[in-house]
Design a protein around this nucleic acid. Structure first.
Lengths: 165, 165
DNA sequence: GCTGAAAAGCATCGCCT
DNA sequence: AGGCGATGCTTTTCAGC
């Protein structure tokens, strides 16, 4: 299912869709240098193969009333599968948890959360501390986000990307 | 420009677009309970007002050859505007840096990076350590990402969201 | 601010190369 | 595999409520 084949045209398509997820197929085809029908076929194939996981609107966190974005570095009391899973399932149920990453390093988890204000942030941090198997919680409040490119760098000209069969 | 007005219908639209960025306007309108033309007008207004910052395809990092995702917690030698900006501008130019967050807490910056493999990750960490004004670098390699919802939680039924003029 | 019809443009299919 | 042409839907505009 993975690594079927990716030529320059596929990479260009992925790059363009990553940049503008609502681009029309006609425009996408024009930029890729092919006509619309084969372009659409490629997009569907890329979706099928799992290269494209979905499409999302990128909303303004602040405008929607979330003044605070913060990271929480969490250490647990143990690292067994059960412990890790129980913690994970617990926090993943919270809508304020936007990212939950199990990590290798000086902490067991890196979480990204949003909060309406500082008081809400404090509540969330307290709840985190009280979550199952939690030993330590360190928070880092985001003051300024200077770069936020969800996705991966793609350069269709870079031969390293081209996966020929 | 911000906070013009947001009723339940706008929130439903934002929620649906966040979930599926390529939903058709007709379907979006149906779900919001209005007809297509006003729905499109609302979407354009939300884009204009900055509630919607863009649309992006969510690509599979691993399938595209990026085996490693990691966070870097960076401490600088000072916190003056000049120092912060110089560091920021330096690392934002790297395509592997996907997120750059200035933080309040035990580190000055939280970066999210992607790397092709462990060796590439080591190179990036070294380059980070050598970047302008860097004092400390701590990395956290992501082993498993159990939740990754870019965006914000929206509940159209929650009156806290409804911003009437 | 919504509806409904109409025009233009797009997605998508089948067939041919 | 890519391209062409046809069809049905979708987007988008405009008049009218």
């Amino acid at each position: 299912m993975r690594r079927v084949k990716l030529d320059r045209i596929d990479l260009k398509i992925l790059q363009d869709l990553q940049e503008d997820g609502r681009i029309t197929n006609v425009e996408l085809a024009k930029r890729a240098g092919i006509s619309a029908p084969p372009c659409l076929r490629r997009v569907r194939a890329l979706e099928e193969a799992g290269y494209i996981k979905g499409y999302h609107a990128d909303l303004d966190t602040e405008a929607l009333g979330y003044e605070v974005v913060f990271f929480a570095l969490v250490g647990l009391t143990g690292q067994s599968e059960t412990v890790l899973n129980e913690f994970q399932e617990h926090v993943n149920a919270w809508p304020e948890v936007r990212e939950c990453n199990m990590a290798r390093g000086q902490h067991d988890f890196v979480l990204k959360l949003v909060a309406r204000n500082t008081s809400h942030e404090n509540d969330l941090t307290s709840s985190l501390t009280a979550a199952p198997h939690v030993s330590t919680v360190q928070t880092l409040q985001v003051i300024r986000q200077s770069k936020n490119q969800s996705g991966v760098p793609i350069d269709p000209a870079d031969p390293a990307f081209v996966v020929e069969e």
